[in-house]
Design a binder for these strands. Structure first.
Lengths: 168, 168
DNA sequence: AGGATAAGTCAGCCTTGTTGACATTCCAAG
DNA sequence: CTTGGAATGTCAACAAGGCTGACTTATCCT
C-alpha cells in the first residue's frame, strides 16, 4: 500500500489502482487461454496433452538436458513428468541416453519425429504470438516482457534468464 | 511470415524474429506460474482449488450472474462447473437464488464468508501484480495489456471488454 | 399443447497433478 | 576397499478437475 516508488507524484500512480490491476489479472487469465489454445487443439487429435508439449519444448531448448533439470524447469514432481516422458520415449519422439560421466543421469534428446511435432506445436503458438506482437507494436512488446518478468517467482526468473541468454 | 505491416521498414521488425517471440512464449509460461502461485498456496490449506477461485472471482465481478453466463466466461462444461459450485454453495460461500423474471435461472451471489475468501485470494494475487506493475512502470503496463488483448480469442476478448467497461 | 431453454444430476472416462516405496548408481568417510 | 548416504530415475496408487453422453425437472414461449 505504500507508494515508495512514486516517480512523478500523485496522478501518475493511477495505473496502480485496484481497478487497473484487476483488469491486468483478467487480461492475464483470458490471454493465457488463447496462448494455450492452438497447441491444445493440435494435441487433442493425437494422444498427448499440454504436459507433453511443455516437455517437448524444453527438451528442444535444452537438448541433452537431464530429467532432474527438466523437473526444476517445469516445477512438477518427477513422477508426473515420468509418465509424460515415458509415453514420448515409447512412441519414439524422445530419446533417453544414459549419462557418460554419471550413469544415474539420463540425457534427453528429440528424435526426428519428436522434432517434427515440436516444430508443429511451436509454429502454431508462435503464429498467434507473432500476430499479437505485430498488432501491439515493438514498444508494447517491450513492456509486455518487462511486466511478465517482474511477475515471476525468483527461481523461475533465473531459469528464464538462463534460457534467454543461452538461446540458440 | 509476410511482413505486411512493416511500419518503418527492415530493422524495425527485429522484435518479430522467432527468437524474440520464443522469449515471449517462455515469459508467458513462467509468469503465469507466478500469477497463480499465491492463491494456489492459500487454497491448498483449504479444501478448494484453482477452479473454485475462478468461480469466486467472476461471481464477485458479476454479482447475480446466472450459471449459464458463468459457464461461457469460464469456458468449461456445466458438469465441471457444477461440481465446484455445489461445493461452494454447500459450504455457504455462494448463494443461489431463483430468478424473478425467469424462474429457470439461478442467480449467484457471494455470502459474507464467500466475499471474505474472495477478498483474501484477490488481495494475494493483486499484491504480486501491483509489485510487477510498479517495477515495470506505467508505459510497460500499457504495453503489457495491449499484447495480452491481442493474444485473446475473439469471443474471450468480448467477455474481457464487457468486464472492463462494466467495472464497478 | 409442445418444442426450446436453464439448470442440475448420474455415470464414467482422461490428463496431470500428488505421495510413498523402491532400484540403481555415485561418492566420500571410515 | 567397503559401506552408507545422497542423488537419479521408476513404479503403484490416488485426487482434482477437465471431458462426453444421457437424462430429468422446471419453466418459458409460440
Amino acid at each position: 500500500m505504500s507508494d515508495r516508488s512514486a516517480p512523478t507524484g500523485g496522478q501518475a500512480l493511477l495505473y496502480l489502482t485496484d481497478e487497473q490491476i484487476r483488469k491486468g489479472i483478467e487480461a492475464m487469465y483470458f490471454a493465457y487461454r488463447g496462448f494455450t489454445a492452438d497447441p491444445d487443439r493440435i494435441l487433442s487429435d493425437k494422444e498427448y496433452g499440454r504436459a507433453h508439449h511443455r516437455a517437448l519444448h524444453f527438451i528442444h531448448r535444452r537438448e541433452g538436458t537431464t530429467v532432474n533439470n527438466l523437473l526444476s524447469l517445469l516445477g512438477v514432481t518427477k513422477q508426473s513428468l515420468n509418465r509424460v516422458l515415458r509415453a514420448l520415449i515409447d512412441d519414439g519422439l524422445v530419446e533417453s541416453r544414459v549419462g557418460r560421466a554419471d550413469k544415474r543421469e539420463r540425457h534427453l534428446y528429440l528424435t526426428t519425429a519428436g522434432a517434427t511435432l515440436e516444430r508443429e506445436l511451436s509454429d502454431a503458438q508462435r503464429d498467434r504470438m507473432r500476430a499479437a506482437y505485430r498488432a501491439a507494436g515493438p514498444a508494447a512488446v517491450a513492456g509486455f516482457r518487462q511486466v511478465l518478468e517482474a511477475m515471476m517467482d525468483e527461481d523461475l526468473r533465473r531459469h528464464y534468464q538462463a534460457l534467454k541468454d543461452g538461446g540458440e
